[in-house]
Nucleic acid binder design. Structure first.
Lengths: 285, 285
DNA sequence: TTAATAGTGTCTCTCAGACAGTATAAA
DNA sequence: TTTATACTGTCTGAGAGACACTATTAA
């Protein structure tokens, strides 16, 4: 690594973008949604984009420089552009991000991906329980949870349907997203699917106490295909440390009848052994 | 995403670091090695570090700016600091990097990770067939393939032994590596182990034509534990598209006797179904 | 009482791993 | 001929998936 010489190396801007995913019920179907903002400024004004922005070195009250961690920048951007408060904000308990799981996805640095200048973007992936509708902030003209994927029929047809194809619901055309954000979103969806296989992170999409059915709906929404309910049930309970029985049940059964479901909370496992593999799709080659 | 205003945002330097892994025979044991350079300049002068350097926007012969892709920067740093020529260099066929597999690992941007300034480093992971010893270039005082992990005994003891504990071989102390490179190396080893499970990338560590035993030695070196040879053999041949029979065999058997081994080449699968899971270690929780 | 929802029993098939044994080649 | 190395046969147990079934509750 050579010594840094500003005469040789032009500055490169660094941004952070966040792919925040949640499950929301759409037309009675639990559906995977992604948080998007409509850009108010060029480039790509009017287009939908992932929430994000420049990473900034900041100066504290005492004058010392206090550089921002990349993950912290991701949380800040989520908060700024959507009105969802970060965990440090005590006044907005209802809009909190403190139960959001965040992990780094990848870094995108192809020349020309931002028409203004060389920009390298570190993308983060976030899993959130159902949060309120966001309110646009910062430079965003709008912000919304947008559906991204249907559960599919399980008949072998591609389970992913482009957003934009769902009923009368306002959706976004993946082909018209700003920058290379459609690519980032695709990578995020693949990472999310994969994470559900070998980690218990599906629980980050649901309330602290949840039923096995709710957990299955998370898998179905993210994987985009229906699962065999009885086998899923047995599987979840058999994986050590995945879920923990609370001893409680739901207050009542389904709307049109049905047994009350047992309530579970997240167990202490950080990885699932054996994993919940999504087979039957195969041929990803 | 806000408009970029240099008065608000100080420049952040972007570097690329490469964790290049290969298998070399050490004391008769195929052993995982990582390519390291000894730093010639402060900070961390004299310490071992991953090869890497600043990403630079460059200006072409015609005056047009020609920004460098992040992956391209990784290959360039590998070449510059180690004397291993990139694939475009036709004159150094013996030292080529054109069979090297490269993928992005993660980005490290904690404040203070470089004492000079705010530096965000995009780390890449490379798998290489046995390459020649590198020659130090750029600002490196030395460059070498260093052993990182032993095959272990399979008796349940931790299979990872700190580099530095191997015989009379020159090795490096992971605790004394420059920057946060020990952490990056750990992340790389975990990613590499995981990649061998569900992709055929083990073949990138061996020659274009290889035996099943050679392939097993890759798995053993990366996973740090011995595998059951007969079952491994059957498993590899049963996974569709993993390897392809050449019809040839090795020219002769083992040094002290033994059957000639059949030669295979890499198949067309990009993922392994079913995967070669490393079980028996469990409890990564 | 019916229908919906939650949950269990059990069978089959695949696959990982263990172990025993065969095939072939070098010294 | 001995020993090393490559490879095959076969058994066992775990787990995924299919299907049939029981349990419980709302309307």
């Amino acid at each position: 690594m050579a010594t840094y010489d500003p005469r040789r190396y032009e500055p490169i801007a660094v941004t952070v973008d966040v792919v925040a995913l949640t499950i929301r019920v759409l037309e009675s179907v639990p559906t995977l949604h992604v948080l998007l903002v409509r850009r108010g400024q060029p480039p790509f004004a009017g287009r939908w984009a992932l929430p994000g922005g420049f990473v900034r070195p900041t100066v504290g009250p005492d004058g010392t420089r206090h550089d921002e961690d990349l993950a912290a920048a991701a949380v800040r951007e989520l908060a700024e552009e959507t009105g969802l408060a970060a965990s440090t904000d005590q006044r907005a308990a209802d809009r909190r991000l403190d139960r959001v799981y965040l992990e780094q996805l990848a870094t995108y640095g192809a020349p020309g991906r931002d028409p203004r200048m060389r920009v390298i973007s570190v993308a983060y992936l976030a899993f959130a329980p159902d949060l309120p509708d966001p309110t646009a902030g910062g430079d965003a003209a709008a912000a919304a949870w947008m559906p991204v994927r249907t559960t599919g029929t399980g008949d072998g047809a591609p389970a992913i349907r482009e957003v934009g194809g769902l009923g009368g619901t306002p959706t976004v055309d993946r082909g018209r997203m700003a920058f290379d954000h459609a690519r980032i979103l695709d990578d995020a969806l693949e990472r999310a699917s994969s994470k559900l296989e070998y980690t218990p992170l599906a629980t980050t999409f649901v309330a602290p106490e949840f039923t096995v059915t709710e957990l299955r709906e998370v898998y179905e929404a993210v994987w985009g295909r229906p699962l065999h309910a009885p086998n899923f049930h047995r599987k979840v309970l058999s994986v050590p440390g995945f879920v923990e029985d609370t001893g409680e049940t739901t207050a009542r059964g389904g709307a049109r009848g049905g047994r009350r479901a047992r309530l579970y909370r997240s167990g202490d496992a950080r990885f699932l052994h054996p994993a919940l593999l999504r087979l039957g799709q195969e041929d990803t080659r």
